[in-house]
């Protein structure tokens, strides 16, 4: 039976159809989940997609974190369900405490919309099990607040526990230790700033994102 992936929509989310399309292209079934619902139904995995949830007011993700759906996402994650937050979705997951650290404004204060090259740093996450360590993937970024930061103690933990999932080969935004994506302790929640759902077809310039989202489908 095909894997069902829930795609969360907050007011202001704008990448949900890209996520749905890439899930279905990879053989899964996408199901939109409205932020005001506190039940995920019988989904096998969850994507929190990009956009500007609740207008990014106060801070990106600060208000989205209190949407009823996030309680359900937290329970799903606690039960081991695979969850990936992309771009604004990554910001939401850090604000919700499902991932460590925070995303601050890009060094250089520019909104960045460009292809980036990512290096796979671990295959022990729900987003990278189809990859090999050292693989380089071309995946675009599209953000203003993508500069990952955390305190020194957390950074040491992320390294020691092999929780840096992806690094930028050429750091575009000032992220500490070139971090583009991290996972939680249980390795079933991953956040990344680049957009794999925008790189699932050669027509878009790269299909490398399919390795990542295909891994998510395998993990579900």
């Amino acid at each position: 039976m095909a894997t069902t992936v829930g795609v969360v929509i907050f007011p202001g989310t704008n990448c949900e159809m890209d996520a749905m399309s890439s899930v279905e292209r990879l053989g899964g079934i996408g199901r939109l989940l409205w932020h005001a619902d506190d039940d995920l139904g019988d989904v096998d995995a969850v994507i929190v997609p990009g956009g500007f949830a609740h207008g990014d007011y106060l801070r990106p993700g600060a208000i989205a974190r209190f949407s009823p759906v996030m309680g359900a996402v937290a329970r799903f994650a606690a039960d081991g369900g695979p969850v990936v937050g992309i771009c604004n979705g990554f910001q939401v997951l850090t604000e919700a405490g499902l991932l460590p650290g925070a995303l601050q404004k890009n060094v250089g204060l520019k909104f960045l919309c460009q292809p980036t090259t990512l290096r796979v740093e671990t295959t022990g996450s729900i987003l990278t099990r189809r990859a090999e360590v050292g693989d380089q993937l071309s995946v675009p970024i599209n953000h203003f607040e993508g500069n990952y930061t955390c305190n020194d103690e957390m950074l040491a933990r992320l390294r020691d526990e092999d929780r840096v999932v992806l690094r930028y080969v050429d750091n575009p935004n000032g992220s500490v230790d070139d971090i583009a994506g991290v996972c939680n302790e249980s390795r079933n929640v991953v956040g990344l700033m680049p957009h794999p759902e925008r790189a699932c077809d050669d027509l878009l310039g790269s299909a490398d994102g399919a390795v990542l989202l295909g891994s998510l489908l395998d993990a579900a």
Binding site: Q104, K105, N106, V107, G108, L109, N147, T149, G174
Partner: peptide, 10 residues
Amino acid sequence: RLRGGIADPA
């Protein structure tokens, strides 16, 4: 305000 040690590009 941003904590000490956090980059403040603005």
